[in-house]
């Protein structure tokens, strides 16, 4: 009896994409990858680039790990995972340096630090090692989206309230400044990112009672 092929976007696969956005969000629920979320969200543009970079590393990395799967010797599997991540991160870094030089300067060491982003290694170990390439790809994308949208939201508010611009363009009308409005310099500092993330967690938990610990 031939096994029926699972459709590409079955219920199960869709869930791989959507769950990390909310209920199992790497930042707001699992509280992983906070370091980079604080450091690079001062402006919207680096946040978006960081989100895309992590997405590329995570989706491709998950697929690679899942293809290698059982052929990875268990005793050195952590090293193998690290090599895969490091290679992909260096590739991303080189591409950014070649085609988005300004942004790569803003991100500086944080592109390199994607290597230490525990979300990626966590997904390799918990999902990709034991699953097929396609679900692994979706799982990588989903988790990177979950990480990315928080980054983008935080970057949006910090740039808007901190410098009155979005993507480098001024959006706060001059009349505001003439009326005495002042950009909030505190928004530019890392603690404010933590507070914005905290607010997101608060909203999320008040809407989803399942997430509240006893």
């Amino acid at each position: 009896m031939a096994k029926e092929r699972e459709p590409l976007f079955s219920e199960k696969n869709k869930k791989l994409l959507t769950i990390p956005l909310g209920k199992e969000n790497p930042i707001t629920v699992q509280v992983l990858g906070i370091c980079s979320a604080l450091a690079i969200t001062v402006k919207l543009e680096p946040s978006v680039v960081m989100a895309i970079s992590v997405m590329a590393v995570m989706a491709v990395g998950n697929v690679v790990i899942s293809i290698l799967g059982k052929s990875i010797p268990t005793r050195i599997r952590i090293i193998v995972q690290l090599v895969v991540i490091a290679t992909l991160v260096i590739l991303v870094d080189m591409v950014l340096k070649a085609f988005a030089y300004d942004v790569s300067k803003q991100l500086s060491v944080f592109v390199g630090l994607i290597i230490t982003n525990c979300i990626i290694m966590g997904r390799f170990e918990a999902f990709a090692m034991t699953n097929k390439p396609w679900p692994s790809f979706l799982d990588g994308l989903g988790n990177a989206f979950g990480y990315g949208w928080i980054l983008i939201v935080v970057g949006f508010f910090r740039e808007l309230l901190g410098s009155g611009t979005l993507w480098g363009y001024q959006v706060m009308p001059d009349s505001f400044y003439q009326a005495g409005y002042v950009d909030n310099g505190f928004m530019m500092l890392p603690p404010m990112a933590l507070i914005v993330v905290g607010v997101i967690i608060w909203i999320q938990r008040s809407r989803n009672k399942e997430l509240i610990e006893n």
Binding site: T87, L91, V95, F99
Partner: peptide, 17 residues
Amino acid sequence: VILTATATLLKPFQDDN
């Protein structure tokens, strides 16, 4: 091999920048 190839390929763009 992968890293060397990419580095060589992207070098002119990076130098340009």
